[in-house]
Structures are given as C-alpha cells and as structure tokens.
Simulated assay, not measured.
Amino acid sequence: MSSCMWAARGQMLALESLEQAAQCIGTSRLGGFQMSAPAFNLWIQVRGDGWIESREGRFRLRRGDWMAFEKESTPLVQSGPQGLCIGIVLDSSALESMQSLSDANLYAGRGRLPARELRTLFRLWREAAHSDGGVLPVRPLLLQLAHVQRDLAARVRRCPGRSRNRKRQVFGRMQRAHMYLEGNADRVVRISELADLTSFSSWYFSKAFHALYDESPQALSVRLRLERAALLLRTTSMMVGEVAAATGFDNCCSFARAFKSHHGVPASRYRATSRASHGLAVNEVHALA
C-alpha cells in the first residue's frame, strides 16, 4: 500500500485533510495541489520548474529549490510542463514525534539543494512514499530535511525569548515575514503589513528582524526588488521603465540610482553585459560541440 498522492497531466487535487500523520505527495507535468489541510508542508523541485502561490506571495521553483510552509499558509503548488515536484505534509503530532525522538525540527523557509543532496532526498522520499504510512517510515527523510535546514536551526538561538519553544515560535513568525518579502518583490512592503502578519508590534518586529537577519526589513525589501529587477533585465525584453514599475519603484530616476548603487553599473549596461556574456557562453558551447 502506498502513502503517496499524485497529481499529473493537468490534474488539480485538493488536500483537505490528512489520513495519517505524515503524507507524501507529488506533482508532475502541470499537475497541482491546493493545500487546504492545516499542516506543515515542504516541497522540493526535482526536475523542470514549478510555481507556488501562498499567503506569503508567488514563487518560482527551479530544479533543486525547496520551500516549506507553516500550516496557516495553505499554498497552491503546480508543476511546469516538464516539472516534477515532491512534497511531504506533516501534522503537529508528526512534528512533535520528530522533535522528541531526535531533538530536530523543521521550519518555514526556502533554499537550494546541491545535486547530490537532491538525489538523496528524492530516494528517501520514494522509499517513504511506497511505505505503509505513518511517521517511522518517513523519519529518515525528515532527519535529512532537518539537516538541509541546519542553517535555519542555527538562527533560532539568536531569536528573543527565554525558552527554546518561545524562540522557535518567534523564528517561525520571522521566517514567514522573510518569505513574504521574497514573495512580494514586485512592490514596496510596509512594516505595518509585516507586523500584522507576525502579530508583533512594528517596533518589536523591526528590532527582532534586524537582530535575526543582520538586515532591516526595509533594506531586505529593496535588495530583493533590485535582484528581481536584474533577473527581469537578463531574462525578458521589458524596457527599463517597465522593469522599474514591475519592482515597485515610483519613477525611473529613483530606480536608476538604486540599481547602480546595488549592482555597480546602470541598468542598461547591466542588460547589455549580461546578454553579451550569455552569447559568449553559447558560442563556447557550440565550439565544443
């Protein structure tokens, strides 16, 4: 008996409740899942690309990307035409069992996996997906995922709070705010929005965020928007003014100053240099073929 649910070839499924404490799910070839069950969920893009829409924003997934969400996020996950995305959904009892058995935990966030680690996780996921269900068969997968998140776990100790549980609670809220900034890199995000999202006061949120990430939420927002602008310049034919508007800048002048200050060159030169470098790389590949 398999504990895996699968959506493929344009099929859209809704996961409204968990039949067991841990559930393996997967999408491929334009398949998708709408998470309605209030449960922690983590996704890994194994092949191709995909998209996730959640309360934190909209995210593009490429091979090797992973994303994890708290139960309040209820994301919609969809694979691209050649995409393969695997997921694991855990209820609170599964998370508590994992923590009590191994003193490990999983957190909301996102990151990238090297190829070797991606292969390991995919193998462990397949083994868990073809088990009889329950927490024990997925425990090796969960421990490997906790290892992937070791950098996040190290940050928990920097959170305010007297107890470890309190630090974890604060960190979970901060991570959600961080992801919200990443998922809304097309506009200016106000501190009041982030404070409401985390249920903290604006003063407390700003102080805790800076202490945790060594960067203010305002500075991170600008940096993420400028990184998105660079991506749009490299991968689209949008005019510079359109890129400025698509990244939340009021006018081209403020965008031009911010872009040059961050990237070291004007936006137009950045685009020309990126295209020239791309053309050179393609020519080198053709020469070696």
Results as ranks from 00 to 15, higher is better:
Leu76Arg: 12
Ala37Ser: 11
Ala7Lys: 02
Ile25Pro: 04
Ala289Pro: 00
Ala219Asn: 10
Lys260Ile: 05
Leu212Arg: 12
Arg223Cys: 06
Thr120Cys: 08
Ala37Pro: 02
Ala153His: 13
Ile191Met: 13
Ser92Thr: 11
Arg257Pro: 06
Val240Glu: 09
Cys253Gln: 12
Gln218Met: 12
Leu142Gln: 01
Leu233Asp: 04
Val285Arg: 12
Glu284Leu: 14
Ala246Asp: 09
Ser100Asp: 09
Val265Glu: 12
Ala39Phe: 01
Phe255Gly: 06
Ala177Gly: 10
Val135Glu: 10
Leu280Gln: 15
His263Arg: 10
Tyr213Leu: 08
Pro137Val: 11
Pro140Phe: 09
Val240Arg: 12
Val148Ala: 02
Leu181Tyr: 10
Gln82Glu: 11
Trp203His: 07
Asn105Thr: 06
Val285His: 04
Arg150Leu: 03
Cys252Lys: 15
Phe40Glu: 02
Gly10Ile: 07
Arg150Gly: 01
Ser277Arg: 13
Ser237Val: 14
Arg190Pro: 00
Arg168Leu: 01
His130Ile: 01
Asp91Ile: 10
Lys260Val: 08
Ser201Leu: 04
Ala39Cys: 15
Met239Thr: 14
Arg139Cys: 01
Gln23Pro: 02
Ser201Thr: 15
Phe209Cys: 01
Leu84Phe: 04
Tyr270Phe: 15
Leu212His: 11
Leu197Pro: 08
Phe33His: 15
Leu220Ala: 11
Arg168Cys: 07
Gly264Trp: 00
Arg166Cys: 00
Leu194Gln: 06
Ser268Glu: 11
Met238Pro: 11
Leu95Ile: 04
Asn283Val: 11
Val148Asp: 02
Trp203Asp: 10
Pro160Met: 00
Ala108Asn: 05
Asp132Arg: 09
Asp250Asn: 13
Tyr204Lys: 07
Arg190Gly: 04
Val156Trp: 09
Thr74Pro: 00
Ala272Leu: 14
Ala14Pro: 01
Leu233Arg: 04
Phe205Ile: 08
Val156Lys: 09
Gly50Glu: 12
Glu96Trp: 00
Glu215Asn: 14
Val46Thr: 06
Val240Lys: 06
Trp6Cys: 04
Ser277Glu: 11
Phe205His: 03
Arg158Cys: 08
Gly50Met: 12
Cys252Tyr: 12
Glu242Thr: 08
Thr247Ser: 05
Glu19Leu: 09
Glu215Ala: 14
Gln20Thr: 14
Arg150Lys: 14
Arg257Met: 13
Ser202Phe: 00
His278Phe: 09
Leu124Ala: 04
Leu76Pro: 00
Val282Gln: 14
Ser54Cys: 12
Leu142Tyr: 00
Gly111Asn: 07
Leu194Arg: 05
Ser202Lys: 07
Gln11Glu: 10
Gln169Trp: 06
Gln99Tyr: 03
Arg269Ser: 13
Asp186His: 14
Gly161Ser: 03
Thr236Lys: 14
Gly241Arg: 13
Gln149Met: 02
Arg225His: 00
Arg110Met: 03
Pro38Phe: 00
Val77Pro: 03
Ser202Ile: 04
Ala272Gly: 08
Met5Lys: 11
Gly111His: 04
Met239Ile: 08
Ser92Leu: 02
Met238Arg: 15
Arg63Glu: 13
Leu84Met: 07
Gln144Arg: 14
Asp49Pro: 00
Ala153Tyr: 11
Met1Phe: 03
His286Pro: 00
Arg187Cys: 07
Arg225Gly: 03
Val189Met: 09
Ala258Pro: 03
Ser192Tyr: 01
His147Ala: 15
Ser3Pro: 04
Asp186Ile: 07
Leu194Ile: 05
Gln149Gly: 05
Arg58Pro: 06
Val285Cys: 05
Ala153Arg: 13
Glu182Pro: 00
His178Met: 03
